[in-house]
């Protein structure tokens, strides 16, 4: 099992943070373009899912998988979106994504008055804590670095 990469978006579609771990193949387009495509896809899938829902939706869209990877999605009522791509062996990781939001993003970015909101996170502390948290996850593979 392994973690490929992670995106953090705000409600306006700004990519606040991106990091990757085991990502062997790149999309072949500029990163900015990739963030936009990712956000656009999430935006559409979200509204599609809520339109098609036979009952009132609670959490909405949670994850999808292809034959190669699984995309996990977590959104707060304020529109912060945490997106993590993993391989197929990883089960539901809502609590992990919630932890990234509540214990890392809120604690280290939102509560830091020197970190302006709504733009790429510059905090080195946030980056390194996030990195070590993800590396410590049970489904983060120990081999390759």
């Amino acid at each position: 099992m392994t973690v490929h990469n992670l995106y953090l978006f705000d409600r306006n579609g700004v990519c606040l943070h991106y990091s990757e771990w085991h990502r062997k193949k790149q999309a072949g387009i500029p990163k900015e373009e990739e963030y936009k495509l990712m956000y656009g896809m999430l935006f559409s899938i979200r509204s599609f899912v809520s339109k098609m829902s036979p009952l009132d939706m609670k959490d909405g869209f949670l994850a999808f998988q292809t034959s190669r990877y699984k995309l996990h999605y977590y959104e707060t009522p304020t529109g912060i979106k945490v997106v993590m791509n993993t391989d197929l062996g990883v089960g539901p990781i809502r609590d992990v994504l919630h932890h990234i939001y509540s214990a890392l993003y809120v604690e280290l970015v939102v509560k830091n008055p020197l970190c302006p909101l709504g733009q790429t996170v510059q905090s080195e502390l946030f980056r390194s804590r996030l990195d070590s948290y993800v590396r410590s996850l049970p489904f983060f593979s120990a081999r390759a670095g």
């Binding site: 609670k58 959490d59 707060t76 304020t78 939001y101």
Partner: peptide, 16 residues
């Protein structure tokens, strides 16, 4: 308020 709401959501687990 803009920042406090994030703390509130992180701590309270209140949904929409």
């Amino acid at each position: 308020g803009v920042r406090l709401i994030e703390d509130f959501l992180a701590r309270s687990n209140v949904g929409r």
